Simulated scan of single mutants.
Amino acid sequence: MKTWILILFLFMITSCSGSSGSQNLTWYKNATISQISEDPDKPEDFLCISIGISPQVFYLSKKESTYKSLLDKLNQSLKKGKPFSIGIENKTNIIKQINDVK
């Protein structure tokens, strides 16, 4: 009986954790970047990213595995005014995903 409870428990944990990825993001569609700067509190870890005319500030982690590709898209938006859909992780304000606007 304990084995079945353990299997059921592990199944529940893995099924719940797999679905939280995109649901944990707030999306800013057709957003353009107005400023990119070092985070004054943790410059070795984060960049501050301002989105929009009335800027809202979010963060890009320099330790993120996709840091270079995300930064490239952010620079395209800043320099060329290219809009993107930007996924911000809830409760952390860290940019996790950037998609092209279709």
Rank of each mutant, 00 (worst) to 15 (best):
K2I: 12
K2E: 13
T3E: 14
T3W: 04
W4M: 09
L6T: 11
L6R: 03
I7L: 15
L8C: 12
L10E: 00
F11L: 14
M12T: 12
M12F: 09
T14V: 13
S15Q: 09
C16N: 09
C16Y: 10
S17C: 09
S17F: 10
S17V: 12
G18T: 12
S19C: 09
S19K: 08
G21N: 14
G21Q: 12
S22A: 11
S22D: 15
Q23E: 15
Q23R: 11
N24S: 15
N24Q: 14
L25M: 12
L25D: 02
W27F: 08
Y28V: 09
Y28W: 07
N30G: 10
N30K: 14
N30F: 01
N30E: 14
T32A: 01
T32F: 00
I33E: 00
I33N: 04
S34L: 05
Q35G: 00
I36R: 01
S37T: 15
E38H: 07
E38C: 00
D39H: 05
D39A: 07
P40N: 09
K42W: 07
P43V: 09
E44V: 10
E44W: 04
E44H: 11
E44S: 14
D45C: 07
F46C: 07
L47S: 06
C48D: 13
C48H: 09
I49F: 04
I49H: 00
G52H: 05
I53S: 12
I53M: 05
I53V: 14
S54E: 13
S54Y: 08
P55T: 01
P55M: 05
V57G: 02
F58C: 01
Y59E: 02
K62T: 10
K63G: 05
E64T: 06
S65D: 14
T66S: 14
L70S: 11
L71I: 01
K73C: 09
K73M: 13
L74Q: 04
Q76K: 15
S77Y: 02
L78D: 04
L78N: 06
L78V: 08
K80L: 15
G81C: 06
P83M: 08
F84P: 03
F84H: 08
I86H: 00
G87K: 03
I88M: 04
N90D: 13
N90R: 15
K91T: 15
T92E: 07
I95H: 00
I95T: 09
K96L: 02
Q97V: 14
Q97I: 10
N99L: 13
N99C: 05
D100K: 12
